[in-house]
């Protein structure tokens, strides 16, 4: 019974705190998620997980129905009201239906996707679920037709694609909302903003998340540099890429290790630390390695989670962690350590360790960071 499964899912989202308002709760109880996922069994449609709907030729997910917990959190962050005019970037169909419920018959919802197969599917499924008043548009979201923006601006824009930038800042009305998974040095945080005096000011807790990548004009450049002969790649996705050829000999010798005395539990997230280091340290990059290569990197980062690193001339330092005990709950306790490679590796590692300790003493227990976004020409 789809409605029983749906109500059970909503009960779970309420208990976990992802739903905070009666409006979002009622909406999630009403909109039939399984209608937007006809490819999977009804039970799968009501699991708290993503449902992939489209893949690239090399097997990566290029479109999906997002996880319910994350959609609930983003809808809460969007603070939608009846009558709001809303733009959604990335069209699964389900989220557009949720938005349409929240803004009611006096609201307006436009959902945009670059992939015509995705918009065809969304159009079909929205009609099947009774939401054919949602406008579905095939377009590159970086170059939208002018009529997407109503007079006076959008009340809200909700982005459901990982995005490196926020070109929609000028389309949002003063006092309006923008919710987006924003990439900073490959770290992706869903951020809820209000527009004030032309700038977007974050005013919701940041949520670490991941969506399918932006395609088209907004596709980001990872600015990858490969250290010759090593199978080590450095991504300078934000900031200026640095030369890396001179780093090759640094990995001939074992690194020096600088301990931080800063620890983290086995299942405790430390995303705030990595975002802090990305902003604080010039020459910051993300380090990945060929898994089968003899790259000389100690405790190499896992394939889909490049390590945090900095380049200092012929030397490099990288954030790692070592298990130092079982922790209070038996899930492990780890100490952040910095590995320094090359002639000035110890110095670079000491510099990074000092920033880890600064974060520990000043920011770790503080409220989450506040993000302000201004148009470039402001």
């Amino acid at each position: 019974d789809p409605s029983a499964l749906r109500n059970r899912l909503v009960d779970q989202l309420l208990a976990a705190g992802h739903i905070r308002t009666a409006a979002v709760e009622a909406t999630l109880r009403r909109v039939p998620r399984h209608v937007f996922a006809p490819e999977v069994p009804v039970r799968t449609a009501y699991a708290d997980d993503i449902i992939p709907t489209r893949h690239t030729p090399d097997g990566r997910i290029s479109s999906s129905v997002s996880a319910p917990w994350l959609l609930a959190a983003m809808l809460e962050a969007a603070r939608l009201r009846p009558g709001h005019r809303v733009l959604e970037i990335g069209s699964g169909g389900y989220n557009a239906a949720l938005i349409a419920e929240l803004v009611g018959p006096t609201g307006q919802v436009t959902t945009v996707d670059i992939d015509p197969d995705v918009t065809d599917r969304a159009t079909r499924l929205l009609a099947a679920a009774g939401y054919d008043h949602v406008r579905v548009l095939t377009a590159d979201a970086e170059h939208l037709p002018a009529d997407v923006v109503p007079e006076g601006g959008l009340d809200a824009a909700i982005v459901t694609v990982d995005t490196w930038d926020l070109p929609w800042i000028t389309m949002v009305a003063e006092g309006g909302r923008l919710v987006a998974p924003l990439r900073l040095h490959q770290y992706v945080w869903s951020i809820g903003f209000t527009k004030r005096d032309g700038a977007l000011i974050s005013d919701e807790p940041l949520t670490v998340c991941g969506f399918v990548p932006m395609q088209g004009a907004g596709a980001w450049d990872p600015n990858l540099r490969t250290i010759p002969g090593r199978g080590i790649r450095l991504a300078f996705e934000d900031g200026t890429p640095m030369p890396v050829d001179q780093l090759a000999p640094a990995f001939d010798k074992a690194p020096s290790t600088v301990r931080t005395n800063v620890t983290v539990g086995g299942e405790e997230p430390f995303d705030s630390l990595t975002l802090y280091l990305a902003g604080a340290l010039p020459g910051f990059c993300r380090l990945s390695v060929d898994q089968d290569g003899h790259n000389g990197v100690i405790s190499p980062p896992p394939p889909h989670w490049p390590g945090a690193a900095i380049v200092r001339g012929t030397s490099l330092a990288r954030l790692a962690h070592e298990r130092i005990g079982d922790g209070d709950h038996g899930k492990g306790e780890h100490e952040f350590v910095i590995h320094g490679y090359g002639p000035a590796g110890h110095l670079a590692a000491t510099e990074m360790a000092e920033h880890v300790q600064h974060w520990q003493h000043n920011h770790r227990a503080a409220p989450c960071p506040r993000i302000t976004v201004q148009p470039k020409d402001a």
Binding site: W164, D165, L166, P167, I169, L182, L184, D238, G239, L275, Y276, A278, G279, A280, H361, N362, H363, R364, A365, A366, P367, C368, P369, R370, I371, T372, V373, Q374, P375, K376, A378
Partner: peptide, 18 residues
């Protein structure tokens, strides 16, 4: 205060202190 420069925007991050 950390600043990231994007194509269309400038992103500033304020880190509150404990």
């Amino acid at each position: 205060l950390h600043v990231f420069h994007k194509k269309y925007t400038r992103i500033k991050i304020d880190w509150p202190v404990v």
